[in-house]
Design a binder for these strands. Structure first.
Length: 301
DNA sequence: AGCGGTCAAGTTGAT
DNA sequence: ATCAACTTGACCGCT
């Protein structure tokens, strides 16, 4: 059984997540600021509940939560504690409803921190801020029952091996809440499966296999081989990613994502597995539904 | 309602 | 030197 995942937002459905900027907040009074943030967080918590209901209706088995669900939560000037917000109890209440519904409907929830969150940097300040961001996302994971916080290897800094050694050292300092959810994904420019699989195997961290990135950054390993080894790094349902190139495979920029998934890009080898596959496509739920229909010929998705 | 300028953050490679 | 790309363009303020 394959569980397909929707990423962050919806294309056609009137379910929106709102955000703001530090620049805008800087022009507000302290009271206005708190009011603005509180309203956004409450709206986003409600939207997440709506998104979970929508996924259930559409038989979509997984939803990735946008990192900005609590806007500017870890910003150095405008960051805040969720419990200090005006409508904290309401917001937390909605998150707890999300947890109940997601469990009842068997919808897996995940996070994917953005490119600024990396544990390989030689700059300890960057590492510190990254950990802070991971802790924030883990806090919401606890509330809503999400089980994955997935990041990339980050930069190479001239030596991928020593960069990954820095990550290994950082792993020991993470809270259980982060450590039990943290996963690493191969990217399309620096860290291929051949780099990350040994790291994940040695450090007991699940490996998120993005087959599109693997096709953009080949390393000599076959899809079947990487798939098997990736699955072994998981103590729960493995998580994979798929997307298709916007302009095809022979037209320059293969890393740009298409509106939909080209069916031939979905590995045959995956079709008999019990895995979650997050659909990274611009048309969002439309792409997930389309893929569902395609896979139904093979298996009961 | 529509549009242009703007937005916290790191790193890399293309131009 | 600048910029786009990355998991996601959205938001504000002006016309």
């Amino acid at each position: 059984m394959i569980r397909l995942g929707l990423c962050c937002k919806l294309f056609n459905e009137p379910i929106k997540f709102h955000t703001t900027t530090a620049r805008y907040l800087s022009g507000l009074s302290s009271a206005e600021r708190e009011n603005k943030i509180s309203g956004l967080c409450l709206h986003n918590a409600k939207s997440l509940l709506s998104a979970i209901r929508f996924c259930h209706q559409q038989k979509i088995g997984s939803f990735r939560i946008n990192s900005r669900i609590l806007p500017l939560k870890t910003h150095p000037d405008f960051g805040y504690d969720i419990m200090q917000i005006d409508q904290a109890s309401e917001i937390v209440g909605f998150f707890e409803q999300c947890a109940v519904l997601a469990k009842q409907y068997n919808i897996r929830l995940t996070f994917h921190p953005d490119q600024f969150v990396l544990l390989s940097s030689p700059n300890i300040e960057i590492t510190r801020k990254s950990i802070e961001e991971l802790e924030y996302q883990a806090e919401i994971c606890e509330l809503v029952g999400a089980d994955v916080i997935n990041i990339h290897g980050g930069g190479a800094y001239g030596n991928k091996k020593s960069a990954l050694n820095r990550v290994t050292a950082v792993l020991k300092n993470l809270s259980d809440s982060v450590r039990t959810r943290l996963t690493f994904e191969n990217d399309d420019r620096i860290y291929c499966p051949k780099d990350l699989l040994p790291f994940c195997e040695e450090n007991d961290v699940p490996f998120v296999y993005d087959v599109h990135h693997h096709r953009c950054l080949e390393d000599g390993l076959f899809i079947e081989e990487v798939t098997d080894r990736a699955i072994k790094t998981w103590d729960r349902e493995p998580l994979f990613h798929i997307s298709s190139p916007k302009y095809g495979w022979d037209n320059g920029k293969t890393n740009l994502h298409h509106d939909y998934i080209n069916f031939i890009d979905f590995p045959d080898y995956w079709k008999a597995l019990n895995i979650t596959v997050e659909i990274e496509a611009k048309a969002k739920e439309l792409a997930v539904v389309k893929m569902q229909k395609y896979l139904k010929q093979y298996i009961g998705v």
